[in-house]
Structures are given as structure tokens and as C-alpha cells.
């Protein structure tokens, strides 16, 4: 799974600002969130950084079967515990009496629910990682015991 430090280590770490960001770390943050692409870092294609470029390309390439926000469930790992469903801030706000309180969904405002023992996304454009005011929310990832959720 990609993480911030892992991505940062593969960047030139020169803070050249050619990408428009103040630092390589800031670039890494946006890259992890898929706000920008690796192509936005011109020095990365220079020969000395090429191995980093190749690795990042593998790491950051969006996979198939993912939602617009990059939400991906590894169905073989998901145990259907519902931690993500209950912890999801969108679910909490939209369905405080149901999922927000640990129970089954009580309305159609939820964006995560459990069916046949596996978490399913729905209305994913309501996810905090989507839209104009998107934020890097980790609620569903941090609460997963088996690391079954990934944003790619």
C-alpha cells in the first residue's frame, strides 16, 4: 500500500518548485490524494531520478474496478466487520441513528454498507475525498483490521 513517506522517498527531494508546490513533501501529499500526477514533476524524468519515476508509476497508477475516488475493497481480505461503515464521517452525519450508532443503515444517505459480508460503496461522490472541498479522510482505512480498503 502506498504511504506518504514511501512516495516522498522516491521523489527528487530537491524542493525545486517546478511543479508549483513549495516542497517535494507537499507534492507527495497531493500525489497520494491523486490531485496531481507524477507527470507534474519535470525533474522526475531525468535519468538520476528515473528509477523513482518507474516505481511511482507502479505505485500510483489507478487500478481497474475502483470508484471515482479511488476507493478499492480487497474482497478477499474484508471480514464485513463494519468498522469503516460506522467510522465513516459521511455515514455518521447522514445516518446518525443507524450506521453512526453501530447499527444497520436506516436511510439511503450512507456511502458504505455491508452486503454478504463485504463492504460496498454507494453514492461515492459524497465521500470526503470527492468534489471541490475534498479532504484526505482516512476513517475507513485506519479502522480496517485486515487492511482491506485502499485508495488507489
Amino acid at each position: 500500500m502506498s504511504n506518504l513517506m514511501g512516495i516522498y522517498q522516491l521523489l527528487p527531494k530537491t524542493n525545486c518548485k517546478k511543479c508549483g508546490k513549495a516542497t517535494c513533501m507537499a507534492f507527495a501529499v497531493d500525489l497520494l490524494a491523486r490531485k496531481i500526477s507524477i507527470e507534474d514533476c519535470p525533474p522526475l524524468k531525468e535519468e538520476k531520478y528515473l528509477s523513482g519515476y518507474e516505481k511511482l508509476k507502479e505505485l500510483i497508477t489507478p487500478a481497474d474496478n475502483v470508484t471515482e475516488t479511488g476507493f478499492l475493497v480487497h474482497e478477499d481480505k474484508c471480514i464485513g466487520c463494519g468498522n469503516c461503515v460506522v467510522a465513516c464521517p459521511v455515514n455518521v452525519v447522514g445516518d446518525p441513528e443507524g450506521t453512526g450508532s453501530g447499527r444497520a443503515p436506516s436511510n439511503d444517505k450512507v456511502i458504505l454498507y455491508i452486503r454478504d459480508g463485504i463492504v460496498r460503496p454507494v453514492n461515492i461522490h459524497e465521500c470526503r475525498r470527492f468534489g471541490h472541498n475534498k479532504t484526505l479522510c482516512y476513517a475507513c482505512i485506519d479502522t480496517c483490521p485486515t487492511k482491506a480498503i485502499e485508495f488507489v
Binding site: 466487520c81 468498522n83 460506522v86 455518521v92 453512526g100 447499527r103
Partner: peptide, 25 residues
Amino acid sequence: PSHSHPRHLSMYSYFPRGKQRQRGW
């Protein structure tokens, strides 16, 4: 509990909002 009682944390013990635990885990 993740393996023995999978919904333990989400339904009762850690993640749900409760009457006196409104702000989340």
C-alpha cells in the same frame, strides 16, 4: 474480536456514537 466477534468494535465497543459518547472514537 476482529476474528471471533467481527462486529464487536463497530456495533458496541469502539466506533459507534453513543448517548454519552457523541464525538466518536
